[in-house]
Every structure is written in structure tokens, then in C-alpha cells.
């Protein structure tokens, strides 16, 4: 997904830039344009391998997300700390039937845990699952409070 949206742009940009340089419209060496294109495009070309290593895990008590090729990171958010959950899909994601799941904790502006590129059905299922658990938790703690 990342690869396709990014590569679409970069392939186009590269071809146009090279063509313009060859025709002499922009006063730069074609080789320089090619080099620039390659350097700027690195994140895009790494899109596929980096998407391959993005993975998530749903455990009994928490949700994990792992990503990174050279800079690896593992993020964990316990279910009882999730304040709300959002699923989001832009036009390109919608075209491919994908969603991005975002989990928010309290007191922050940004999502604490983001899982991109889930199947729509799976994303919805996951969201529902996490929400259910949240409801259970709250009912549970409130019950405890009542007893105490």
C-alpha cells in the first residue's frame, strides 16, 4: 500500500524530471536529476520491505505493534489504558479496502499506537474486540468499587 501510493508518485516524478532535464527545460544534469531522484526515493523504495516487517499482536491484556528495518521499535498499550479507538481510511486505502487503526490514550494529542494497512473487515473486528474488552474492564472495575 505504502509502496504503491509512494511509488506511483516517485516513478511519475522521476520520469518527468528526467525528461525535462534531457529536453533541457530545467538547467540540471540528467545524471544529477537521476541521483537526486534515487536519494529522495529511498524511503519509498524501502516501503515494501518495511511494510513486510510491520506486525501486531493482540494479547489478553494488551496490544503490541512492531515495526522497523534498521530502527526497530515495539510499542505496547494495555487495553485498560485505551481511551478511544479510531479507524481511518483515505481515498487510496479505500480503493484497496484497507483501514488504519489508531488507539488513543488519555491526555495526548497523537495516537499512541497506529496499525496501518489492515483489511477493512479485520480492522472493524479488531476495533470491536478491543472496545468490548474495554467495556468489560470498566464494568469489572466498577463492580469492584461497588463492593469496596
Amino acid at each position: 500500500m505504502v509502496l504503491i501510493s509512494g511509488a506511483g508518485f516517485w516513478l511519475f516524478a522521476g520520469v518527468v524530471g528526467l525528461a525535462l532535464a534531457l529536453m533541457g527545460v530545467i538547467p540540471l544534469q540528467p545524471a544529477l536529476v537521476l541521483g537526486l531522484w534515487l536519494v529522495l526515493g529511498i524511503p519509498t523504495f524501502l516501503g515494501y520491505p518495511s511494510a513486510r516487517v510491520k506486525r501486531y499482536a493482540v494479547r489478553e491484556q494488551d496490544l503490541l505493534f512492531h515495526e522497523g528495518l534498521l530502527w526497530k521499535s515495539t510499542t505496547v498499550i494495555p487495553r485498560n489504558r485505551i481511551q478511544h479507538i479510531e479507524t481511518e481510511n483515505g481515498p487510496v486505502e479505500r480503493w484497496f479496502g484497507l483501514v488504519t487503526l489508531k488507539c488513543y490514550g488519555a491526555g495526548g494529542q497523537q495516537a499512541d499506537l497506529v496499525i496501518p494497512g489492515l483489511n477493512e473487515a479485520l480492522g472493524e473486528q479488531l476495533r470491536q474486540h478491543l472496545l468490548d474488552q474495554q467495556a468489560d474492564d470498566q464494568a469489572g472495575t466498577e463492580g469492584d468499587n461497588g463492593d469496596a
Binding site: G68, L70, W71, K72, S73, T74, T75, V76, I77, P78, R81, G105, A106, G107, G108, D112, L113
Partner: peptide
């Protein structure tokens, strides 16, 4: 704590180091 994140770069990994980031409500 609300979120915990452990991350490392490839250089850190070679020498067995990592960074720990936690986020609280504050």
C-alpha cells in the same frame, strides 16, 4: 504509564542497547 515503547537502532542492537519510552497522562 499508558504506553511503553522499546526501540533500538541497528548500531545499538549490535552492542545490546535499547531505548525505553513511556507515556503518561502528563
Amino acid at each position: 504509564a499508558q504506553t511503553v515503547r522499546v526501540y533500538d537502532s541497528f548500531l545499538q542492537r549490535r552492542v545490546g542497547l535499547a531505548n525505553l519510552a513511556t507515556r503518561l497522562g502528563s
